[in-house]
Design a protein around this nucleic acid. Structure first.
Length: 357
DNA sequence: TAGGCGTGGGG
DNA sequence: TCCCCAAGCCT
């Protein structure tokens, strides 16, 4: 495959089709770093909203480093994968304390920082500093695997070939433009299931042009768990308990939760994570709650680290189900699939992860 | 290395 | 409704 030609085609396409994204206007290293943390496993539309909000609250790297972790988590609330927020904060502190406040332009130095892996290091080095580093995310891996005619990127041979070709590309043309062009191409043209090959600038040389990959093997649903949320509401406020410190949503404020008992009500909400699904029965409580906690209004919630689940449960407690979210109602004796049962046909990790090695 | 770790949108 | 995600990282 001709890397020079591919890079040239990508460059020309990008010049006319690049998406207008905030951190692309100045390539400020802090803006790029912030965006890359946010965009790990996150949709662009959602990411852009949080990018503006986090930048508003923490205008500079030093502001972020000087903030309380709790305030960073509060600003991150609703975005998910909350460890990213702690890693972002820890990385900002390390850069300010140990590196004089200067974000490294070197991939190896970047990868030393918490929350920065091979992809993010390469993305920062190339986009912020135009250094010749690869940034192989799911999009790039898919695009290059197709260009090279390798099929679904699962085998090690394909991984090495993709990496080698990506390295030739960033050595040939502006790494900043090549990497972002590949990302944009992957998210707008070279789509996972229905590639729009007629609109693709690489179609003439692509070894998979016009051909779709075989359908993915399906998997069963994520294992379900039943929980019960105990909801005290008083004067527009709901009783929340502080972060437990570990496990799923462990960094966040939630209403008191416990494993469901058979006698609990069957109405509630369904909250789906990437690896499990919770059925949360909503139990309205009266009287005075015991244990650690606070009465929190929707307004005050913004200052506390919390999950989308917290918002949904509070909305339920304060006035019924929020619009747009289905309330599930099951028969008294309904059963929920437990982990390890059901119709799973493959490993969960094999479904959506495209990794190289 | 496989599994843990969120969320809201789209087919 | 249900399934699939979407610019990964860490252990």
């Amino acid at each position: 495959m001709d890397a020079a030609r591919t890079a040239r085609d990508l460059d020309a396409w990008f010049a006319a089709n690049a998406r207008d994204l905030p951190w692309r206007r100045d390539h400020d290293p802090y803006h790029v770093l912030l965006a890359e943390f946010i965009l790990q496993q996150t949709r662009m539309e959602t990411g852009v909203r949080y990018f503006h909000e986090l930048l508003r609250r923490f205008p500079t790297l030093r502001d972020l480093a000087g903030a309380n972790e709790r305030d960073v988590l509060a600003a991150w609330s609703g975005l998910g994968y909350y460890r990213r927020a702690r890693n972002l904060h820890a990385t900002a502190r390390r850069i300010v304390r140990e590196l004089g406040g200067r974000i490294p332009s070197d991939v190896d130095a970047l990868e030393e920082l918490p929350g920065i892996g091979p992809y993010t290091a390469g993305a920062i080095a190339s986009i912020a500093f135009d250094r010749p580093a690869t940034s192989l995310d799911g999009n790039q891996i898919r695009v290059l695997s197709r260009v090279l005619g390798l099929g679904r990127p699962s085998n090690k041979q394909g991984g090495r070939q993709v990496r080698a070709f990506a390295e030739r590309l960033v050595a040939t043309a502006s790494p900043r433009r090549v990497n972002q062009a590949l990302m944009d191409l992957g998210s707008t043209i070279c789509l996972p299931d229905r590639p729009r090959c007629r609109a693709c600038p690489l179609a003439a040389s692509c070894r998979s042009a016009g051909r779709a990959w075989p359908p993915r093997r399906k998997e069963g649903p994520a294992p379900g768990e039943r929980w019960t949320a105990e909801l005290w509401a008083r004067g527009g406020r709901v009783w929340l308990t502080p972060p437990r410190g570990k496990g799923l949503l462990g960094d966040l404020w939630l209403p008191p939760m416990r494993p469901a008992r058979a006698s609990d009500p069957s109405d509630g909400i369904r909250h789906v994570f990437s690896h499990k699904r919770w059925h949360v029965a909503t139990l309205r409580r009266h009287g005075t709650p015991t244990g650690k906690g606070r009465w929190v209004s929707m307004e005050a919630l913004r200052g506390l680290p919390h999950s989308a689940l917290t918002r949904r449960l509070m909305a339920w407690a304060l006035g019924g189900a929020p619009a747009g979210h289905a309330v599930w109602v099951t028969p008294r004796r309904a059963t929920v699939r437990r982990a390890g049962t059901g119709t799973a046909t493959g490993s969960r990790s094999a479904r959506s992860k495209t990794r190289l090695r």
